[in-house]
């Protein structure tokens, strides 16, 4: 097949993987630290996209609009954390999963109410293309990839080089012990949850110009984000990055081979990986409370 097609396919897959990573990283961190599965992250993703769209339409700005989207998502996640999750951290995982699914469904309902059912197009910040190995590639997609890389670096720096990161890593191992030392773990929880919300909102805002902004967008990425999280292993950041790009590539290159199969190929990949390693590529046995 045409080499040019493959190169643009790889770039497309990387940018898509970047969006998946931004979404899944928060989900994965929340699992590692609080032992919750926060399906409502997908609501923050949708909200981030809608707010970015709204600001973009009203002001014509693009990057600031995306920032607004991420911040609005963070604000909503803060409210949800204070009102809902703060009461249910001690419960089992399935409990948080069901509750957060309720939040997601309610939120999608609210979005439909405010913005309607019709998909909305969103302005792209950078229209330019750049030649890469002789192939014209949209600069915006490369920026998205760069942002995901920067976020990964920032999270790693935070976890390994700062005292708060040390506290988070310690709490992933044994939260009671951290609290026994006198660390206010609930603030860590809030911070992590809101951080995840901001990342999800950022993912939605960045994804907006690449797809249409529509009420179902959160539910549509659900399977892909889950695949990323599951393949990578719940709670592992490195695994999340690896599997995000893996799923991105499988979807992108898969669609070059046979378009209708692109939606299914990652699922097949996931099944194979789970058959081989039931807790994902990097899911460790250490992650037990």
């Amino acid at each position: 097949m045409d080499a040019h097609l493959w190169i643009s396919g790889v770039v497309y897959g990387l940018s898509m993987g970047s969006i998946f990573f931004l979404l899944a990283a928060g989900l994965s961190l929340c699992f590692g630290l609080m032992r919750i599965i926060s399906l409502d992250q997908l609501l923050y993703y949708s909200l981030g996209a809608y707010v970015a769209y709204q600001v973009n339409v009203s002001t014509g700005l693009t990057w600031p609009a995306m920032l607004c989207g991420a911040l609005a998502a963070g604000a909503l996640s803060w409210v949800v954390e204070r009102w809902v999750f703060d009461r249910i951290y001690a419960r089992e995982i399935t409990f948080t999963m069901i509750t957060s699914f309720g939040i997601l469904v309610a939120g999608v309902g609210a979005i439909k109410y405010v913005w309607g059912l019709v998909p909305r197009p969103m302005g792209i910040p950078v229209e330019a293309q750049v030649a890469l190995l002789g192939v014209n590639v949209p600069v915006y997609r490369i920026i998205v990839i760069g942002i995901a890389g920067a976020v990964y670096g920032a999270i790693q720096w935070l976890l390994n080089r700062t005292i708060v990161g040390t506290a988070i890593r310690a709490a992933v191992e044994d939260v009671d012990q951290v609290e026994g030392l006198g660390v206010d773990v609930y603030r860590l929880f809030t911070g992590t949850f809101v951080g995840a919300g901001v990342l999800s909102g950022l993912a939605g805002a960045l994804h907006g110009p690449l797809v249409m902004v529509d009420p179902q967008m959160g539910l549509e990425v659900v399977p892909f984000v889950f695949m990323v999280v599951i393949i990578g292993g719940l709670g592992s950041l490195k695994g999340t990055l690896v599997s995000a790009f893996l799923v991105g590539q499988v979807v992108s290159l898969g669609s070059l081979v046979y378009a209708p199969l692109a939606q299914m190929a990652p699922f097949a990949a996931m099944l194979l990986i789970l058959l081989w390693k039931p807790t994902g590529l990097y899911g460790s046995a250490l992650l037990r409370r």
């Binding site: 005292i163 040390t166 310690a170 951290v178 026994g180 030392l181 006198g182 660390v183």
Partner: peptide
């Protein structure tokens, strides 16, 4: 301050990090 049983220190953290965490708190 509560010193739990079973000698639970953070396995993945160095002694220095363990102490820094207590200092931070």
């Amino acid at each position: 301050r509560y010193v739990q049983q079973d000698k639970r220190v953070f396995a993945d953290l160095t002694v220095r990090e363990n102490l820094r965490l207590a200092s931070y708190a």
